[in-house]
Computed example of a mutant assay.
Amino acid sequence: MKKKIEKALKNVIIIDNKNIIESGWVKKIDLLDNEIKIYLSLSNPAMHIKNKLIKDITHSIKNQNISDTISIKIEIKSDTNTKTKSIIKNIIAVASGKGGVGKSTIATNIAVTLVKMGFHVGLLDADIYGPSIPLMFNIENKSVNFQYKNGIMNPVTSYGVKILSIGFFSKYGQAIVWRGPMVTKVLRQFMHETNWGKLDFLIVDLPPGTGDIHLSLLQEIPLKGIVIVSTSQKIALSDVNRSVGMFRIESIYVPILGIIENMSYVLSKKEKCYFFGKNGVKDFSKKMNIFFLGEIPMLQKIREYSDLGTPVVLENEETRNIFMNITKNIINKLHGIT
């Protein structure tokens, strides 16, 4: 029976196409009545990877028709030698109080623009409940199956950007139903237990709102600044106003580098049609003393390339120039606070 279990465990693939038997993760197998206990030893396993292992092992053993009652225990082995030695010069968060304003699209294209300017760039998708970055870069789950090694996660590189997202560890469309403390723990692991290497910039795509996720990130991650995204719609600016208030709270203060007006207008017969209202973000920036970084029109090309999983700045010159100017403004503001 033990051989059948080992055979089942060989179907659980992890790093470099190795299974958990070959990798030495399985330390002990106990058979107690109708119960199977499998002890694994990992170095600082991230919670979502631990959960995936339990699921994969359980599924593999059940497929062998060995037992219906399975108990799996994972022993966590602490190994100080596996701590990352990442050196990140500038961590910038892209935020908005309102969802659906194109924050992830902007974070994606700013990251790729920075790469094209010659910088080493990472992108951390902190939007746990609605991760969009995997779609923006056309990264499938199967491409990240072997990115976890020696207790440290290795980001996936796409278009020159090092990327990590909770979307890599969940099926497309699968709901992630987690409480705040669990989310915070995962994001902490993404930040501190990932081999980011040497980066000039790490862009953090924040979820919308002003909840405990934001507070935890602001208190734990040494952010250099915040880039805010909004449309000119009054309801969007109302939510953004609350976000600005949060970032300016004395105990968690983070400099706001500026605000971007997204989907600012549509070109109709060579005339600008301001679908969400004209100059709403510009007026808001003056009122709140926030630098206006630039405006991005509502272009069909942006939507098309985003759906294809290709950053639009790589394919469309008009959009490339817009993002280049905005990115230069961000860098200039960053230099002004350092």
Rank of each mutant, 00 (worst) to 15 (best):
I252A: 06
S86D: 04
Y253Q: 14
S78L: 08
V156Y: 15
I21W: 00
K4W: 07
Y159K: 07
M182E: 03
I166E: 04
S132E: 04
K98P: 12
V94A: 03
L215A: 07
V227A: 05
I72K: 12
K28P: 00
G209P: 11
E75L: 11
I290Q: 10
T108R: 02
V121L: 03
K85D: 02
I54G: 03
N321R: 10
N154M: 06
V26M: 09
Y265D: 06
K142V: 11
N90W: 05
G24L: 00
P134H: 02
K142N: 10
K116D: 01
L206H: 07
K171I: 06
S143P: 06
G97D: 02
S243Y: 06
Y172L: 11
S264I: 05
N19I: 02
W196A: 08
D30R: 14
I106P: 04
N150L: 11
E75G: 13
L314D: 05
E250Q: 15
K89Q: 11
K282G: 05
M47S: 15
I226H: 02
K171C: 09
F247A: 01
N109T: 05
D56F: 08
I91D: 09
E250V: 11
G100M: 10
S306A: 12
L334I: 11
G160C: 07
S96E: 07
E140N: 11
T58Q: 10
M153C: 14
W196I: 06
S41R: 08
I15S: 14
I337R: 09
I213F: 00
P255H: 02
A8K: 08
A111F: 07
M298L: 15
G97W: 09
E35A: 02
I74W: 01
I29W: 06
A46R: 12
S143M: 12
I128A: 04
T338P: 00
D125C: 10
K27G: 06
D125V: 09
L187G: 04
S60E: 14
V313P: 02
D212S: 04
I213Y: 01
T319P: 09
S71T: 13
M117W: 07
L124C: 01
I38F: 08
R303G: 00
I203S: 06
E315A: 13
Y39M: 10
G99W: 05
T184R: 00
K224A: 05
I14S: 15
D205L: 11
E295C: 02
L53E: 01
G197R: 01
S132P: 03
E6L: 15
A93Y: 02
Q233G: 13
I203C: 12
N44K: 09
I128V: 15
K301N: 12
T310K: 15
T69K: 15
D239N: 10
H48N: 11
L123W: 03
H120K: 15
K73S: 09
A93W: 07
G336W: 13
K234D: 15
D307I: 08
K18Y: 11
G209F: 03
V144F: 06
F284H: 00
A107W: 01
N63A: 13
G99C: 02
K328H: 13
L257P: 05
S170T: 15
I337K: 12
Y274V: 01
I331D: 14
I91C: 05
M246D: 03
